[in-house]
């Protein structure tokens, strides 16, 4: 197991035990590698890197919703790679192509290019369109404006529990957006 992968595994184990900071660090650490792999795969099929962020966000959503399928005794790299590959194949299918994608090790993907690109480019605009108003308000407040759960609850006149439930439904809805495009 490579050093990168070991580091991801340590973070994810802590995250699964409830450490939110470790979870953020984990998701932030894997993202550039997933992005680099997605770009390379897109290039292989003559598609522009602009679609990479679709794959990245779809992959992050799947990693999140399926995090219990990582067996903590097994290496995490192949698990992430398999999810990323599945989501790339989904993207290709949405484009009406049945892609044969080689199994690539996301942990081996160098993402040096990432440091000098402004993150503003990575905006999947239509993501929020498919949420209902309540979900959109919660996601906008928590994620985009970075307001805490408690303040969001006060602002939207909801309980903290209701905020969490709404957020969870919103996350599931975001994952469904990609699934519905496929059909």
């Amino acid at each position: 197991m490579g050093a990168v992968e070991e580091e991801w595994a340590v973070l994810m184990r802590a995250a699964m035990a409830g450490d939110e900071a470790a979870y953020r660090a984990f998701l932030t650490a894997v993202t550039p590698s997933i992005r680099a792999t997605a770009r390379r795969n897109l290039g292989r099929f003559g598609l522009g890197a602009s679609e990479a962020e679709d794959v990245v966000q779809d992959t992050l959503l799947a990693i999140h919703l399926k995090r219990q399928t990582w067996d903590q005794d097994r290496p995490i790299g192949p698990w992430i790679s398999a999810i990323a590959r599945n989501k790339f194949i989904d993207l290709m299918r949405r484009r009406g192509r049945n892609a044969q994608v080689p199994i690539e090790d996301v942990a081996e993907s160098l993402a040096a290019e990432d440091s000098d690109v402004t993150l503003d480019n990575y905006d999947v605009h239509r993501m929020l369109d498919n949420l209902n108003e309540k979900q959109r308000n919660v996601v906008r407040s928590l994620a985009i404006e970075g307001v805490s759960v408690r303040q969001t609850a006060e602002r939207l006149n909801m309980t903290e529990g209701a905020i969490r439930v709404t957020l969870h439904r919103a996350v599931k809805a975001l994952a469904m957006i990609y699934r519905e495009q496929k059909k």
Partner: peptide, 9 residues
């Protein structure tokens, strides 16, 4: 939605 915002969510 930016990827960083998604991670926050």
């Amino acid at each position: 939605m930016k990827t960083d915002d998604l991670i926050t969510a």
